[in-house]
Amino acid sequence: MSIVLETRNIDKSFYQPEKTKILKGVNMQIDKGSFVSVVGKSGCGKSTLLYILSTMDTDYEGGLYLENDLLTGKTGIELAAVRNEKIGFVFQFHYLLNEFSALKNVMLPALKQGKLSHKEVEQKAYEVLKSLDMGDFAMQNAAKLSGGQKQRVAIARALINDPLIIMGDEPTGNLDKKNSQMVFEIFKDLAQVKKQTILVVTHDPEFAQASDRIIEMADGQIVI
């Protein structure tokens, strides 16, 4: 199995209010097609690690590799392109643009990538929404959707560019039981049927149990 994501000795410190080392020499590898959960107590550094992996946080020491390509030290513009093409995000909060329809929200990253024509992007976005049972709501304004629907649109947005890896930061954290279950099913389906590489930070033990691999963190280090 090939390795999609790898970290080598990642250290990170916060300097406010005083210097605290939050990550201490994190080494990990994520295999292609695996569904990985990162668990741990609050403050153990799991979210911090995720944002470093997502390339949005560049203030760390060590090396980050995506498909054996060193991402550490690349410029903001290069990293933006990497995020656009290769990484999909699902956050605790949906972060949809209220000014746009559900469909347009899904289309944005693909339009930004610019590989497909507007028509093709529209087609593809609709397909993705349909696969998440959101086809009927494609033209709805994002602000008018329910919480669960919003999160499904956010997942569709993460999927639109066929990313190498999907990262989730507590993707069910803001949802009720029923909707959590549904999002959970979507992730499971993506991992098992579509062989999508997934990395999720979660508090939810049930969610973690369903994944292929659980990484447990404590005090800025990987325990298991």
Binding site: S54, A81, R83, Y95, R157
Partner: peptide, 15 residues
């Protein structure tokens, strides 16, 4: 929020 998500999904600073 909009700016943050645009950046997260691949829009660069110049964009």
């Amino acid at each position: 929020d909009t700016i943050a998500i645009l950046k997260a999904t691949g829009f660069s600073g110049p964009d």
